[in-house]
């Protein structure tokens, strides 16, 4: 069950000023970021040209997680806070649990290549809505998880109590790159809560509609499409066998050979010091650290740095796929993978 530590929600409820909310908004940034490395790895691990549809779905989720991270950061900035992104504690230990004890201590997130097991047992657990809609999958599916929606619900409640004078610093918010429909200036409690609604809706959908927008299912259901191998559709002429929605649309094929055989949970020591593999591995970790530095600068007074961060994201993809096509040892099938940790220099 994906449970959030009750202390966190209680903590938000006891906040009396905007500064009291800073640590929780920082938590939100960390939470939104924490899913990016496992999702990105799964996305990178799909060999270009073989599983492009699945890759496209995961990529679209990753981009929205970045949007969510940006929203949380912009709200914190608007309230006069300073997001902290470039420090070792910002990055969860993989394998490990998610920030704020989300999912409980037993829920361990790994850095793994794409697999159906990863989708159902990790990604769909992370994205489980508060109130999942009963989707026809033409076989039984029991859902018992809880959600992080409560966390955002508590935040919204507190934010709505803040006066407009608490908000500002528009020039320090990251407003370019993403569409203005999802990233807009946070100027008061209404805009802040509208932005939080986007996070929740893109992640979970609503309690009655699994689509966050036309043709675009929320994250949980997007992963469901991958797992069940078909697009999510609304029932029109009974093809969902009595359910309002089902995974019964166009097939989403999975080619099992189309995944790099990356060994799970890579570490810096996957290659000996002084080897070419180590150069590749260190390049990735440095690139990822640079990305966090660029994001940190973007959220702390240099919003234009976001363009640089985007450049780094593309570079990371090249680096990750180079690692994933490099065998750990000569003659071995399993390959190396990206190491997500922050190193200052």
């Amino acid at each position: 069950m994906l449970k959030i530590d009750p202390k966190i929600v209680a903590g938000i409820e006891s906040c009396t000023s905007k500064t009291d909310l800073y640590p929780y908004l920082q938590n939100a940034i960390e939470l939104e970021h924490s899913t990016i490395p496992p999702y990105l790895t799964a996305y990178y691990s799909l060999i270009p040209g073989l599983n492009d549809e699945i890759a496209g779905l995961i990529r679209s989720v990753v981009i929205e997680e970045m949007i969510h991270m940006t929203i949380a950061a912009n709200i914190l900035v608007s309230l006069g806070g300073s997001p902290s992104v470039n420090n070792p504690d910002f990055v969860p230990d993989y394998p490990g649990s998610l920030p704020m004890g989300i999912g409980g201590r037993d829920f361990t997130v790994h850095i793994s290549a794409f697999s159906m097991d990863l989708v159902i047992n990790t990604f769909m657990v992370i994205e489980e809505p508060e109130d999942p809609i009963d989707i026809g999958v033409l076989r039984s599916q029991e859902v018992t998880y809880h959600t992080i929606g409560e966390f955002y619900g508590a935040l919204k409640k507190k934010i709505s109590q803040l006066p407009t004078s608490d908000f500002g610093h528009q020039e320090r918010q990251v407003l370019s790159v993403f569409s203005p429909e999802v990233i807009f200036p946070i100027t008061d409690s209404t805009t802040a809560n509208n932005a939080i609604d986007i996070i929740v809706k893109q992640g979970e959908g609503t309690s009655t509609d699994p689509f966050e927008s036309a043709g675009e299912p929320a994250h949980f259901y997007r992963f469901g499409e991958i797992y069940y191998g078909s697009q999510l559709i609304e029932d029109k002429n009974g093809q969902c066998k009595g359910k309002k929605y089902c995974y019964g649309g166009n097939p989403i094929p999975f080619v099992s050979e189309g995944v790099f055989p990356m060994k799970p949970d890579p570490t810096s020591e996957q290659f000996a010091e002084g080897s070419y593999g180590r150069v590749l591995s260190d390049n990735f970790t440095e690139g990822y650290s640079s990305l966090l530095n660029a994001l940190h600068e973007s959220f702390n007074g240099s919003p234009d740095q976001i363009d640089t961060a985007i450049g780094l994201m593309y570079q990371l993809r090249f680096m990750a796929q180079k690692l994933m096509s490099t065998p750990l040892k000569e003659g071995e099938i399993s390959t190396a993978g990206p190491v997500y940790k922050y190193q200052k220099t």
Binding site: S289, L312, Q315
Partner: peptide
């Protein structure tokens, strides 16, 4: 001391 490169942009 370490000669570092770009730590907030691509190489």
């Amino acid at each position: 001391l370490l000669i570092a490169g770009s730590n907030n942009q691509v190489a």
